[in-house]
Design a protein around this nucleic acid. Sequence first.
DNA 1: GAGAGGCATAGGGACAGCCTATGTCCACAT
DNA 2: ATGTGGACATAGGCTGTCCCTATGCCTCTC
Lengths: 309, 309
Amino acid sequence: MPLPPRVTDLAGFDLLLSVAELGSIGRAAKAHGMSQPSASERLRTLEARVGVTLLERTHRGARLTTAGQLVAGWAAQVLARAADLDAGITSLRADRQSHLRVAASLTVAEYLLPAWLIALRSVSPDTATVLSAGNSVHVAEQVLAEKADLGFVESTDVPAGLASRVVAHDELVLVVAPAHPWARRRKVTAAKAAATPMVSREPGSGTRQAWEHALGVAGITESAVPLLEMSSTTAIKAAAIGGIGPAVLSLHTVAADVAARTLVRVEVGDVDLHRALRAVWPSGRTPRGPASDLLTIATRTLTHRADRG
Amino acid sequence: MPLPPRVTDLAGFDLLLSVAELGSIGRAAKAHGMSQPSASERLRTLEARVGVTLLERTHRGARLTTAGQLVAGWAAQVLARAADLDAGITSLRADRQSHLRVAASLTVAEYLLPAWLIALRSVSPDTATVLSAGNSVHVAEQVLAEKADLGFVESTDVPAGLASRVVAHDELVLVVAPAHPWARRRKVTAAKAAATPMVSREPGSGTRQAWEHALGVAGITESAVPLLEMSSTTAIKAAAIGGIGPAVLSLHTVAADVAARTLVRVEVGDVDLHRALRAVWPSGRTPRGPASDLLTIATRTLTHRADRG
DNA sequence: GAGAGGCATAGGGACAGCCTATGTCCACAT
DNA sequence: ATGTGGACATAGGCTGTCCCTATGCCTCTC
């Protein structure tokens, strides 16, 4: 299901936020490196698409209407995630002149790193970061071979030769579509879950291994054959939402869907699905410079969350 | 500061997600109502902008590379917020044929309603919703005059004639730029905060009133003249991040910035800055139909959060 | 070895977006 | 009163992007 075209024009919303911030269309235009008439027209077409007047234009500038404030608030959320996306992309690019090399598991890279990188940029703006994503083994290799200055893994065991610090927590969760029978019960036994065919990641994936490992610890060694195997988290989510069947995914992956009730979380009895996310580095070589900054940022985020929990 | 143009093309990322989900460029193109060559070219220009190969093209379709999975994950976040934005816009439009009319304070409208509306759509897809946003008095008027079927307010006192239920919690927080002296101390007294000029909303705003009320309860009746008064939350955030001065804002507004450490939260001693967000409706007229569904959704979200807290 | 499915390339046309120049409106100062 | 400056709107013309149809190439399958 494609996104409605109404919200595809991020530049327009970005301009709207600048108007809110700077108080006039002309100044916003200058901030975006465009002429005042262009900005003016752009905002008018934005209003036309939205269908509501967003700006009150006066001879002394322009202010947001109530509806404009709402739209600006929603748009700010979109743009904040877009900034995350940009930070992530920047760290993926192969302009490998730079100094901070990070290796991370997919979960960390997807859900935590972008915000950290933005924070890092405000601490040391000139540090370019290169991100290499892979499974735990890959991360350990990179760090041990000193191809990465800092690594982030989600395994419970820290590979030999590496020192570590816990920077966040993750959890596997079982989710179903709201229409699924399990959505009402909100709890199933581990045995039942294991015996039920599900939508699943491919065998080698960290999520799948963690799930099978957790079941193994609980004494369950046989799982049903998956209903469907896919390599992309989004694809699995789409299948689960579409009602194909239950899925097991990282809490971070599905938090938004659970909050919005497009997916329902089902507790699984008697299985420990929790796992710590750790920063790792070669034993004895305490991170220095930007790597140390990034480690501090990651750790502080954790502390802060604990404050509020 | 305008958004980097690299991430402005939401349609391209949306297409990428469809490829991940459907397994081929051609099928994704069909899902988006465009021709296969167009989709193909679009993805190629996307890859060029990102600077990394995102897709592995084979004769049996196309799959995401590791980098592609990362980018898709980040993009999914952006698109999820964009869907919220779209839901909000839909509810603002004046196609007032519809049946569910909601009046809400700005905070609720900005941070909670979009997700609820998306959830509502999955329960009763044909219900169009009209949103009217304003302060608590406005919401009470709308609901009492039966111009709204359900209202959401953030006052501690429920206006006479209305029944209510708590659906969420909010909190005012004092934030400063990381470079500000208070960022290290992480705590100031209420008297000190009141005596310090800050970046502030205009006098009539709910946030400002709540702040002054909370100080009043603590016995502080005089506040310093604001450093700068602006009517938009984003403008205030931008000023605070820029280091103009401290600001007091809703927790929801600044949560992302605090997590990313672009703003630092400073505790304020001896003041109760907490406030409940309530759903309200005319006493004796228990909500029915879509209004009841929305109330259930809002309440469930709260329950679920409590589960995890 | 022929067919089918999937992606890439080529060429042409429509439309959106931008810029410069100019017009209009209103507040404020003289 | 009148002039001036700041701010937004309008007009006209150009450029570039995006999309579509048609076609080509490759590889697996039967």
